[in-house]
Amino acid sequence: MSDAITLLKVEHLTMRFGGLTAVNDLSFEARTGEITALIGPNGAGKTTVFNCITGFYKPTEGRMALIHPLPDTDQLIADTTQRGVSSINRASVHLLERMPDFRIAWEAKIGRTFQNIRLFSGMTVLENLLVAQHNPLMIASGFTFLGVLGARSYKVREKQAIEKAKFWLEKINLIHRADDPAGDLPYGDQRRLEIARAMCTDPVLLCLDEPAAGLNPRESLELNTLLLSIRKDLGTALLLIEHDMSVVMEISDHVVVLDYGTKIADGTPKEIQADPKVIAAYLGVDDEEVAAVEAEVGL
């Protein structure tokens, strides 16, 4: 995409646990409207990168900046005029390493899913999606005070929240299970629900940690469609960790390859497939995985 601009800029990210360096001097970018894939053999430090970006770990060194794209210039001028102020300060940059995890989700607007699914299993599918809209609903409920008194404005806002949840449930084909506990869903549905839940926070960047793990080929295909539609219809950029090369090569615009915490390649899927360093990294792991990679990239 030609008009893609930098959304996430990771520079010199290093994360050490005691003596172990999990991520070493990693720099890469994710751009608006693109799907960026982070791949690498097991233990390469991919999930650690995710945990740093989403604030669950504080990186040892490095800077991670999230730059919210400016809205349309004409729109901005119109907004300023309408509000009757002389200027609007809309440009927003978030240095993620300085923010706690919940502010990264709410202010920097980064959504994420987890490698081992973390749904609220005892709550219904609908409730899961409502919890994801906690912050706007909290404001609408006047930080609970208006809500306790039963204010109308909150009821209206809650209806909107349910509508949004319905929109996502239809998108992931789970509307018929809205009132069932999330823990009752089959595995593939849980994966999709977790993505929908993250999307309910209106992220500008959605980080997916192995979304296709454990899915059968049909489900995997559905996932591809869902992810592409998220990018196309909502304009959300995606950053994903994935082992399933069919997913990676098919949908991603840009691939970053990690090995032992260090970046060994960065480019389009085509370039990555041909990169000897990448092949060596996978060759170094074990024969089975190499065979799988070779089969998938068509070597």
Binding site: F56, D101, R103, R118, M123, V131, T144, R197
Partner: peptide
């Protein structure tokens, strides 16, 4: 009443999975 408000749902979500709550901006 609180159970049906965002704060009550957040409490229950917290009981279910605190890490997921943080990833949702709570």
């Amino acid at each position: 009443r609180l159970r049906r408000l965002p704060v009550g749902r957040a409490w229950e979500a917290l009981r279910e999975d605190e890490i997921a709550c943080r990833s949702l901006g709570i």
